[in-house]
Lab assay of single mutants.
Amino acid sequence: MAEQVALSRTQVCGILREELFQGDAFHQSDTHIFIIMGASGDLAKKKIYPTIWWLFRDGLLPENTFIVGYARSRLTVADIRKQSEPFFKATPEEKLKLEDFFARNSYVAGQYDDAASYQRLNSHMNALHLGSQANRLFYLALPPTVYEAVTKNIHESCMSQIGWNRIIVEKPFGRDLQSSDRLSNHISSLFREDQIYRIDHYLGKEMVQNLMVLRFANRIFGPIWNRDNIACVILTFKEPFGTEGRGGYFDEFGIIRDVMQNHLLQMLCLVAMEKPASTNSDDVRDEKVKVLKCISEVQANNVVLGQYVGNPDGEGEATKGYLDDPTVPRGSTTATFAAVVLYVENERWDGVPFILRCGKALNERKAEVRLQFHDVAGDIFHQQCKRNELVIRVQPNEAVYTKMMTKKPGMFFNPEESELDLTYGNRYKNVKLPDAYERLILDVFCGSQMHFVRSDELREAWRIFTPLLHQIELEKPKPIPYIYGSRGPTEADELMKRVGFQYEGTYKWVNP
């Protein structure tokens, strides 16, 4: 592979701008107003304001973009700056750019259920340069409990009458099928589907988006991507930290609602779906819905739930269990780990287990898709061969690698495990991989909904998990304890083995 010439960040961002501006969906010269509902909250200060700053800094926003914060707290732009700027990672050389960014910011205080507050917000936006005809993007960085009041008031008082209007809704989209349907029906009564952007930030990850290209742009994968060759698929999300004093919020939802029903299920769809007619948003989402419709409700015998306990040999936070978090209700049975087996009941995947695993306070930070292939028929190497695996590593250190057998150097035919490896950090030294939120917010500006969740996708996802969630809430089974920093409950490994996964433990990928 030829040595790549190092590029400056300015040059890299210039390439990104060229890609972005050559499309006809990006209205570079139009006025846009980006409204952050819930501007005083954690999500706004840690993710949304920093993301908008990065896009502005790199010249990736339309030229005439204004940012308006809205929340109940009586704040000023200076207050917003004070709480969000520490997350910007701005350099001293960017000081003038930073001043320009905050000059485009404003803030309006108001209630979430008060019509007069929204009329005041609308008047404020109209007073901005060309504000009355601007395109408006409303980001709901809010708890779902206020979605209905907020969307109703936005629709009645704050819509642009000339430009387009788009609304970005953060997960969780309800707690179960019934609450999700209620919320979807409410929002759909106010906005068209092409105006609604239900954001799952995992769909903005580079390697998640790469799944489609790997599958449908490489001839070698087509013939082997089926039940005849693939023994099982494992989708993993692991965090090495616990709730760390923020367990009160987590306890309301648990690990299945927080990660599995959305992030992991979306990745499953991209692995299992048929080739779409095109890369058009609805063509892709149509195929994802077909996959979900082929999955039956989760069966309790295919589920393992766990909850982390303190590690007596650990240090600091590792010595504390979930129930030691003062914000967690006493005696909570909320799971911090889950392993679930699903089956896609169609011709391509009949009988292939899709194993979804996620948890907190585990032994490493990792998100990946792992396809394990069947054993080689007619073994001539005296059971020395391990199964081939194709691994798409989402985070950290984005990579695609194939675990395969090669001859060990020497005189004899002794096979050993090795890999074919594409590590993004080595291959793409001159490429700026956008943060997931950067990519998705740019998608909203461009009107691309491919990486957002459609209402029928959402409904099918909740259909699969709601009976299990209701059973857990009714019966309150005690989750299996696992030690902070471990791989999780051993019962999860036993479940995976029972459905056909072979864990060798003899080879570990190392970032080159």
Rank of each mutant, 00 (worst) to 15 (best):
A6C: 14
S8N: 14
T10P: 08
F21N: 07
F21Y: 15
F21M: 12
Q22G: 05
A25S: 10
A25C: 12
F26M: 15
S29E: 14
T31A: 14
A39W: 00
G41W: 00
D42C: 04
L43Q: 01
A44K: 01
K47M: 06
I48H: 00
T51P: 02
T51M: 13
W53A: 08
W54M: 13
R57F: 03
D58T: 12
D58L: 09
L60F: 12
P62Y: 06
N64R: 15
F66D: 08
G69Y: 00
G69K: 00
A71Y: 10
R74G: 10
L75R: 07
V77C: 13
V77P: 11
K82P: 11
Q83N: 07
F87V: 11
E93G: 12
E93D: 10
K95G: 13
L96Y: 09
D100H: 08
F101V: 03
A103W: 10
R104E: 02
A109E: 09
A109T: 09
Q111T: 15
D114Q: 08
S117L: 07
L121H: 01
N122H: 13
A127I: 11
G131V: 11
S132T: 14
N135F: 07
F138C: 06
Y139H: 05
L140P: 06
P143A: 10
E148T: 07
V150L: 05
T151I: 06
T151A: 14
I154R: 00
H155G: 05
S157E: 14
N165I: 10
N165F: 08
K171D: 00
K171V: 02
S179H: 04
L183T: 10
S184T: 15
N185E: 11
I187F: 10
I187L: 13
I187G: 02
E193P: 02
Y197M: 03
I199C: 04
D200E: 02
K205D: 00
E206V: 15
N210A: 09
L211G: 03
A217V: 06
N218H: 03
G222I: 05
P223R: 05
I230K: 01
I230M: 08
A231K: 15
A231Q: 14
C232M: 10
C232D: 01
F237S: 06
K238H: 01
K238V: 04
K238E: 02
G242S: 04
T243R: 03
E244D: 14
G247C: 04
F253H: 08
